[in-house]
Design a protein around this nucleic acid. Structure first.
Lengths: 178, 178
DNA sequence: ATCTAATCCTTCGAGATCTAAGGTTTGATC
DNA sequence: GATCAAACCTTAGATCTCGAAGGATTAGAT
């Protein structure tokens, strides 16, 4: 996006009613405007393979560390339970997953990846790995990537616990402040 | 979201080790799961002030380097024209902006921030600046922040030109490849 | 002049997402 | 065990977003 490099206030910039914070581009905005097109590009890639970013994300979460409940799964994918229900129903219709009530706790829906689902994920994985390889190349050396991800981890860790259920009064906290 | 921090060495929390078996967490996913809660937290903050993340973003774009057309504005905010129309209508109804047809080119709608809009933005600015200050503190020194933003810039620059209109075949490109 | 194409914006319909509220099942308390 | 609360999921309604198509205006070509 050309706008992500708009530190050029254009020579002869006019004092407008709304004045931006001088010089500093907000971190959160920059982060957003970077993540946004990347995810969209990734999604476009997966759509070509007959899937979508969120379907892939759900399959990934199911494969990585199988969540017990849909709530956990939603948390892992970063969406709400209601939204997950929506996706799971579609995925179930498409035969990618199977849902069964557990006899020992009939509240939970156990989500399982079907053969078809596993096959699809395997196909997507190649594209995803290649995509990731290129992004890492853009970032730099392995150390650069590690440092970058570490910072992201710290930022994410600074986010409120429940995802976005309750915002503590003084959030985000200073580093070290507990 | 506890899951977004499941790889960070996070000082003082370690509830679950649920880690991807084959190492390498996808960069795009990590980026997304960091940006997502941050933006949501920021939005929640602004909502308390009677606005929203996108309203603030639009006001910011209008103030920073006033776009000539709505198309430019949409690009600056990272949304589609159709979506922008939606927001602008609401903002116009709320008296935050004013839209007028230009006599020399009656296709374009010139967007202007009203007094009320400027006043609201001024109020939001304090919250936004403080929010940003804290995020930067989480990242580290000023140099750390600069390095971090530089990487984000490179990632964003690697994205396809029009934002996400056309995905070149070999995207994202290797650094240096043109 | 007129026709065609491009630019700019809006409308429409569909999909993703959220919050809030509801339904079921389970656990705890009396 | 009856009742109340909690856990888990779904449904309903609203909002944000997009793509595609349409309307209006301008610029370019004939």
């Amino acid at each position: 996006m050309s706008d992500t490099s708009d530190e050029s206030p254009a020579p002869g910039d006019e004092p407008r009613a709304a004045q931006a914070p001088r010089g500093r581009r907000p971190v959160a905005v920059t982060l957003w405007k970077t993540a946004q097109p990347l995810i969209r590009g990734f999604d476009a890639l997966l759509v070509e393979h007959g899937a979508s970013w969120q379907v892939w994300h759900i399959l990934l979460a199911l494969g990585t560390s199988p969540p017990r409940t849909q709530r956990e799964l939603a948390g892992a994918v970063g969406i709400r339970e209601a939204t997950l229900t929506h996706h799971l129903r579609a995925m179930e219709d498409n035969g990618l997953i199977r849902r069964t009530r557990m006899p020992d706790n009939r509240r939970v829906q156990h989500v399982e990846v079907t053969e078809d689902g596993a096959r699809l994920f395997e196909e997507l994985r190649a594209a995803a790995v290649e995509f990731d390889r290129r992004l890492r190349a853009v970032i730099g050396s392995e150390d650069d990537v590690a440092r970058f991800l570490e910072v992201l981890g710290r930022l994410a860790a600074a986010a409120p616990e429940g995802g976005r259920d309750i915002l503590p009064e003084d959030w985000p906290r200073e580093p070290g402040v507990r």
